[in-house]
Amino acid sequence: MTWSLRLNNDLPAADLLQIALLAEDLGCDQLWVSNDLYLRSAPVLMGTLAARTSRIRLGIAIMNPYSVHVSELAMTAATLAEVSGGRFLLGIGAGSEEFLSWAGLSRAKPLATTAQAVAALRRMLGHRDVSDADLPSWFGDHSVLRFEQTAPVPVYVGGMAPKMLAMAGRLADGALPLLYPPEHFATAQAQVHDGLRVAGRDPAVFDLPACIWVSLSDNASAARAALAEKLAYYGPSISPYLLAEVGLRPEDFLAAAALAQRGRAAQAVAMIDERMLRLGIAGDENDVIDRCRALQRLGAEHLSFGPPLGPDPLAAVRILGERVMPALGTVPRVAASATLTTNGGTT
Rank of each mutant, 00 (worst) to 15 (best):
residue 182 P to S: 01
residue 233 Y to T: 15
residue 200 G to S: 01
residue 176 L to W: 01
residue 192 V to C: 07
residue 223 A to P: 02
residue 157 V to A: 00
residue 202 D to R: 05
residue 261 Q to N: 14
residue 128 R to C: 06
residue 153 V to N: 09
residue 215 S to Y: 04
residue 221 S to V: 15
residue 222 A to D: 12
residue 224 R to T: 09
residue 201 R to T: 00
residue 129 D to S: 07
residue 256 A to L: 01
residue 181 P to W: 00
residue 182 P to C: 05
residue 264 R to E: 15
residue 153 V to S: 07
residue 171 L to C: 11
residue 154 P to M: 11
residue 147 F to T: 00
residue 264 R to H: 13
residue 189 Q to R: 15
residue 194 D to K: 13
residue 242 L to R: 11
residue 128 R to V: 06
residue 191 Q to W: 15
residue 155 V to S: 02
residue 233 Y to I: 12
residue 202 D to N: 10
residue 263 G to R: 04
residue 187 T to E: 13
residue 228 A to S: 11
residue 238 I to G: 05
residue 211 C to W: 13
residue 181 P to G: 04
residue 189 Q to T: 06
residue 180 Y to F: 15
residue 211 C to D: 11
residue 268 A to V: 08
residue 131 S to M: 07
residue 212 I to P: 08
residue 150 T to P: 00
residue 139 F to H: 03
residue 136 P to M: 01
residue 244 A to F: 09
residue 216 L to M: 07
residue 177 P to I: 03
residue 221 S to G: 15
residue 266 A to W: 02
residue 257 A to V: 01
residue 178 L to I: 12
residue 145 L to A: 00
residue 158 G to P: 03
residue 215 S to N: 10
residue 140 G to T: 06
residue 171 L to A: 11
residue 159 G to I: 08
residue 189 Q to Y: 10
residue 199 A to Q: 03
residue 225 A to S: 14
residue 171 L to R: 12
residue 271 M to C: 06
residue 214 V to A: 10
residue 203 P to G: 05
residue 227 L to Q: 02
residue 269 V to S: 07
residue 258 A to M: 09
residue 177 P to Q: 10
residue 259 L to H: 07
residue 164 M to I: 10
residue 214 V to F: 08
residue 141 D to S: 15
residue 269 V to L: 11
residue 136 P to V: 03
residue 252 D to Y: 04
